[in-house]
């Protein structure tokens, strides 16, 4: 399963993008569960967010959902952290 995260906005306005493939990963089952939860809780269009807050577009197997700080679910936050390898 390919999971991509695009992060935009933030105080610095610097964009980040990363993709993770769960194939062969020891935590694949856990990541698949996070991905399912993320898709369920996400929005099809970007939420308004807050000033200087990060915006995220998460693409899982071709399906893209949007979410924004600080209104992330636990699953979204963990998935974003894992893919971007940075605090979310």
């Amino acid at each position: 399963m390919r999971i991509s995260v695009n992060r935009s906005g933030g105080f610095a306005g610097i964009e980040r993008h990363a993709t993770l493939d769960t194939t062969g990963r020891p935590d694949a089952v856990h990541l698949h569960a996070l991905a399912r939860n993320t898709l369920t809780a996400g929005q099809g269009t970007p939420p308004p967010g807050v000033p200087d807050g990060f915006h995220y577009a998460i693409t899982i197997e071709g399906h893209t959902i949007h979410c924004a700080d600080p209104h992330l679910t636990d699953a979204q936050r963990e998935l974003i952290r894992t893919v971007l390898k940075e605090g979310a």
């Binding site: 933030g10 105080f11 610095a12 807050v50 000033p51 200087d52 807050g53 990060f54 700080d69 600080p70 940075e86 605090g87 979310a88």
Partner: peptide, 21 residues
């Protein structure tokens, strides 16, 4: 706020600061 969080924002009520990485 959070760990290695590279941002600061205003959430509508207050300011929030990360420590940076």
């Amino acid at each position: 706020y959070d760990e290695s969080y590279n941002n600061a924002f205003w959430n509508g009520e207050q300011m929030v600061f990360g420590d940076g990485d």
